[in-house]
Computed example of a mutant assay.
Amino acid sequence: MARKIKRRIFLILEAKEHKQTLSRACEYFLIFLIISNTLAVCIESIEEIFKAYEFYFIAFNRFSVGVFTLEYLLRVWSCTTLDRYRHPIWGRLRYMVTPLAIIDLIAFLPFYLPFTNADLRSIKLFGLTRFLQLLKLGRYSRGIKILGEVIHLRQEELILTLNIVCFLLISSATLIYFVEHEAQPDKFPNIPAAMWWGIITLTTVGYGDIYPITPLGKILGGILALLGIGLFALPAGLIASGFTEVITANKKLAQTPPPRICPHCGKPLDETLNNPTHLRD
């Protein structure tokens, strides 16, 4: 009986594998709660509204933390339903270190820390962690999942582009430091400080708070800005092509009929027919 209940809870929480009414309702409720918490954090920043409805904001926050805590505990308890987490101890530990499980833990764990002897000055920063609950949408959002697949597909090219960006950033910051330091010692006091100018120039944002005034510095800034235009267009093209490949592959997969499952052994029917011993078992 306990095993059936565990399996049922797992299927309800894992809506992607169990698209029944209760599973969908659980999924939509959690999505609503995550979005509502994010909106609540934004509204709480308006001091007049927060003071007027402080009790309701705190109550809703505690209710949300309670729901997320219960969800996490149920996921850890029922994860042994899967073969790869079958062991009651090591299987659960393996599940707890998966990325999604870590995100689920971060979504509520900081709110229990104020009840310890932690520094009260640092506890105020825990309010910012409520935005981390937005990461839980990655479990339910198809768009975020596709983005993850695209990044995984193009990870080598993106890493190569990142290496080029880092090389240009360090090189430009070093050059502009030696060129502009004597003319503007307060603006370019050292190479790490000059990296801020390099980032703003490479991205062609141009805040205008720091800029070269020497002729050589202006030439260097212009060259770097031109390189930045083409450099940041490169990862955009890689991600766009990756999206096309992933979406096309998903459409082909959706058009493929699902495999027929044998009611006796739970394996694909083609495999069962090729190996009739499953039927005798």
Score class of each variant (00 low, 15 high):
97 V>W: 09
97 V>F: 15
98 T>H: 01
98 T>M: 10
98 T>W: 07
98 T>S: 10
100 L>W: 15
100 L>N: 08
103 I>P: 02
104 D>P: 01
104 D>F: 14
105 L>V: 01
105 L>E: 01
106 I>H: 05
106 I>L: 12
108 F>K: 00
108 F>C: 00
109 L>G: 08
110 P>K: 00
112 Y>C: 01
112 Y>N: 00
112 Y>L: 05
115 F>D: 03
117 N>Y: 13
117 N>I: 06
118 A>H: 05
118 A>G: 07
118 A>P: 00
120 L>T: 13
122 S>H: 07
122 S>L: 12
123 I>D: 04
124 K>Y: 14
124 K>I: 09
126 F>T: 01
127 G>K: 01
127 G>W: 12
128 L>W: 14
129 T>P: 01
131 F>S: 00
132 L>N: 03
132 L>K: 02
133 Q>H: 04
134 L>W: 07
134 L>V: 09
134 L>H: 05
137 L>A: 10
140 Y>P: 00
141 S>G: 03
141 S>E: 06
142 R>N: 14
143 G>I: 07
144 I>Y: 01
145 K>H: 13
145 K>Q: 14
146 I>P: 01
146 I>F: 03
147 L>W: 13
148 G>S: 08
148 G>C: 04
149 E>N: 10
150 V>G: 15
151 I>G: 04
153 L>M: 08
154 R>I: 09
155 Q>R: 14
155 Q>W: 15
156 E>M: 14
157 E>L: 11
158 L>V: 11
158 L>M: 08
158 L>F: 15
160 L>H: 14
160 L>Y: 14
161 T>F: 15
161 T>E: 13
162 L>P: 00
165 V>R: 05
168 L>I: 11
169 L>D: 04
169 L>Q: 06
169 L>C: 11
171 S>G: 12
171 S>W: 15
172 S>P: 00
176 I>N: 01
177 Y>E: 05
177 Y>H: 11
178 F>I: 03
178 F>W: 10
178 F>M: 02
178 F>T: 02
179 V>G: 05
180 E>V: 06
180 E>D: 09
181 H>C: 10
182 E>H: 09
183 A>H: 08
187 K>N: 11
187 K>D: 10
188 F>D: 00
188 F>I: 01
189 P>F: 15
189 P>K: 05
190 N>A: 08
190 N>V: 03
191 I>M: 09
192 P>N: 08
192 P>F: 14
192 P>Q: 07
194 A>G: 06
194 A>Y: 13
194 A>Q: 05
196 W>S: 04
197 W>V: 05
197 W>H: 11
199 I>N: 06
200 I>W: 02
202 L>N: 09
202 L>A: 11
204 T>C: 14
205 V>M: 12
206 G>S: 12
207 Y>V: 09
208 G>V: 13
208 G>M: 04
209 D>E: 08
